Amino acid sequence: MGKNFIGLDTDKTQKLTEVLNELLSSYQIFYMNVRGYHWNIKGENFFELHAKFEELYDDLLLKVDEVAERILTLGHRPAHAYSTYIEKSEVPERKDVSDGKEAVGNIVESFGKLIAKQRELLSLAGEADDEGTVALMSDYISQQEKTVWMYRSYLGQ
């Protein structure tokens, strides 16, 4: 059993990195979806949703960078091609969405996929004794669970 430069099992971090790259792919597609919602939103809630979507895509961009840097910290290479993102993302690409409720519904669905993937990563990171990834995923999950509650409340759910 080999160890990487931060003292973690290389076989376990290989698997962890594969799943982190799946998460990175989902974040990238989700980010572009939300940019599209921001650009294309129309209707009576335009001002509120336009601002809310900008706040969300700014946060998603930070998370894209943090996940990529975590992969690098584990000694691997982050995915960096949109063809890979499309292939590995669990968040589907959304095009030409201008209806606010549809966009918010897609956001709730996407967060559900991210949270599930992050829970998987919590387990894998725990098995690998990777406290850095555990902490990152735990922070994301607790933030996003509250965000999902707020977006679902907007939808009247």
Score class of each variant (00 low, 15 high):
146 K>I: 13
21 N>G: 05
19 V>G: 05
37 Y>Q: 03
61 L>M: 08
34 V>A: 07
151 Y>S: 00
102 E>R: 14
140 Y>R: 10
25 S>E: 00
129 D>V: 06
53 F>S: 01
109 E>D: 15
28 Q>V: 05
31 Y>Q: 06
72 L>P: 11
108 V>P: 11
69 E>Q: 11
24 L>C: 02
107 I>K: 03
110 S>D: 14
23 L>R: 04
121 L>F: 06
68 A>K: 07
57 Y>E: 02
59 D>L: 11
77 R>A: 06
107 I>M: 10
139 D>Q: 07
121 L>R: 01
35 R>Y: 08
71 I>P: 01
56 L>Q: 08
55 E>M: 08
34 V>R: 02
92 P>G: 10
64 V>H: 05
55 E>S: 12
101 K>T: 09
15 K>C: 13
89 S>G: 02
109 E>K: 13
20 L>S: 02
49 L>H: 04
104 V>C: 10
29 I>Y: 00
50 H>W: 02
39 W>S: 05
85 Y>M: 02
116 A>R: 12
155 L>W: 07
58 D>P: 03
6 I>D: 07
92 P>H: 13
59 D>E: 12
117 K>I: 08
101 K>W: 05
25 S>G: 08
146 K>G: 11
126 G>V: 07
93 E>L: 15
27 Y>E: 14
152 R>T: 09
31 Y>A: 01
97 V>C: 11
2 G>I: 07
16 L>P: 03
44 E>N: 12
156 G>P: 08
116 A>Y: 12
16 L>W: 02
107 I>Y: 02
127 E>Q: 15
48 E>M: 10
121 L>S: 03
85 Y>W: 09
20 L>E: 03
36 G>M: 01
115 I>L: 08
71 I>Y: 02
55 E>Q: 11
14 Q>F: 10
25 S>F: 00
157 Q>E: 14
56 L>R: 04
85 Y>E: 01
155 L>K: 09
58 D>F: 04
16 L>Q: 09
125 A>M: 05
103 A>T: 11
39 W>I: 03
148 V>E: 08
38 H>W: 00
89 S>L: 00
68 A>W: 04
87 E>G: 00
80 H>W: 06
76 H>Y: 05
101 K>R: 13
2 G>T: 13
143 Q>C: 13
9 D>E: 11
121 L>A: 09
97 V>Y: 10
2 G>A: 07
123 S>N: 14
54 E>C: 03
14 Q>E: 14
80 H>M: 12
13 T>L: 10
